[in-house]
Design a binder for these strands. Structure first.
Lengths: 246, 246
DNA sequence: TACTTATTGTGTCTTAATGACATAATAAAC
DNA sequence: GTTTATTATGTCATTAAGACACAATAAGTA
């Protein structure tokens, strides 16, 4: 197969896939074949395919999930973000066949997407170019290829700013969750501690959560109430926006 | 000259250039040769050029301005955002020579940038592919090629959201301006009226403006004081951000 | 010159949001 | 039954926001 015939030249998409598990924010990464380096899942764009759809396609094949909260956040377009040395190692390690050499030696720009999804629903699948596909906590990111560390940083930064416009917990948490879990998610994304009581007051003031009549038993101490997003109210509030400041 | 030898394939940049003049927000547009349609200034990316630099280059050649506040805001990547019919008219109207035909018939994705600059400093220059380069008020946008109307809409939307992170007046207004001019700029971008007195209070609370000791004479009625951005305080505040909400 | 007019400069008041913190309730462990 | 850690809820002072009043003044008018 000749890549030049089927894909848009010099363009890739990379997806920073966020999940929340055991009170930690994690990203789904691929371990490269015959290498210690990891990478953000990514792919190429078919000639007649919307760029957004290429990202969706890659996401589905890595996670098995179809309906995904997915947003482009930045185009990484520096002239020398890839290099010949990098492709040399790919060929040497037999990650790519030598007949694809000229495709991979192109200059590539890459469009970064971030995805939010419920950890437990994901079935990680490495695909044919990777030997492993796994969740990695944000503070344990391993050595990454190319500028993928930058791509993750920028995704997190965008997510942090996006928090002002949209309560992203809806996409990252399971149907039922405690206020504590929601707050810890916010703290992780914002990188700062929030007062437990004030957070709850503010969150409830948005009127997008339903308090359920049962609690999460099993842990030590007092059992916390469970909450769920009220889809209808959530969508209504989303139109108006959640930030009153201007 | 063969475009394929010099430029990154299937990629363009388009710049939505904002200026503020006579209390109106305007964009700099190009009128296409032999056509009634207008376009946002744009260009291609050289093979060894950062994408950002390609946008800067285009901006400099249209406005003569070197140091520009410029931000990428969205990649427009739908598969059929261009069309063969469109290129047919370009060739027919001799906007492009027929030997460039195959270059222009590629599928193009385009990266949208918005620029903020001081109206009076700009020297509009149409270049060789347009017959006119002129400022157009936002509510008088003419018929535009391709998806350029969408590109402008999205730029304005991004600018509106950006207002929460950065007082963009600094880039759009001349050194000295009245509080009234600053407020009208905000009202235009936000698309809503703001209370004159509350706006002033809020703006001054940021402590990034210096009140000058002279006023703007000439208009009828009481002469308003002039203000200027205090560069040092502005940059300090920018680090912390201007929005207290989360 | 004195008056009119439209606009600017500044202040007040009420209400809402935020930040800091206190206390009671309760599930699990001892 | 008691202890312990956590959750649920409330209070209070401070700050920000929204609505609006009134004095000051430059230019035009009589």
């Amino acid at each position: 197969m000749n890549y030049f015939d089927h894909y848009h030249p010099g363009l890739s998409v990379d997806c920073v896939i966020f999940g929340f598990h055991e009170n930690e924010l994690k990203v789904l990464l691929l371990k490269m074949k015959n290498s210690k380096k990891w990478a953000v899942p990514g792919g190429f764009v078919r000639k007649n395919e919307n760029v957004d759809d290429a990202a969706k396609r890659e996401l589905k094949s890595r996670t098995s999930i179809e309906d995904i909260y997915l947003k482009q956040f930045h185009l990484f377009g520096d002239a020398y973000r890839s290099s010949d040395q990098y492709v040399d190692t790919l060929v040497k390690d037999q990650v790519i066949q030598s007949d694809m050499d000229s495709w991979f030696r192109q200059r590539f720009i890459t469009l970064g997407y971030y995805a939010l999804l419920e950890f437990s629903k994901v079935i990680p699948s490495p695909g044919k170019n990777a030997e492993l596909c796994d969740w990695v906590p944000l503070n344990e990111i391993p050595d990454l290829i190319l500028d993928h560390a930058t791509i993750i940083d920028k995704a997190l930064l965008t997510l942090r700013n996006q928090l002002r416009f949209e309560p992203i917990g809806k996409n990252l948490l399971p149907i039922e969750f405690t206020m504590n879990e929601l707050r810890i998610l916010y703290e992780t994304i914002l990188g700062e501690e929030l007062d437990r009581r004030n957070f709850q007051r503010k969150m409830l003031s948005f009127s997008i959560l339903d308090k359920l009549d049962h609690v999460r038993k099993g842990g030590a101490h007092k059992a916390p109430f469970l909450y769920t997003f009220n889809e209808e109210k959530y969508n209504q509030s989303l139109k108006k926006g959640f930030n009153t400041v201007w």
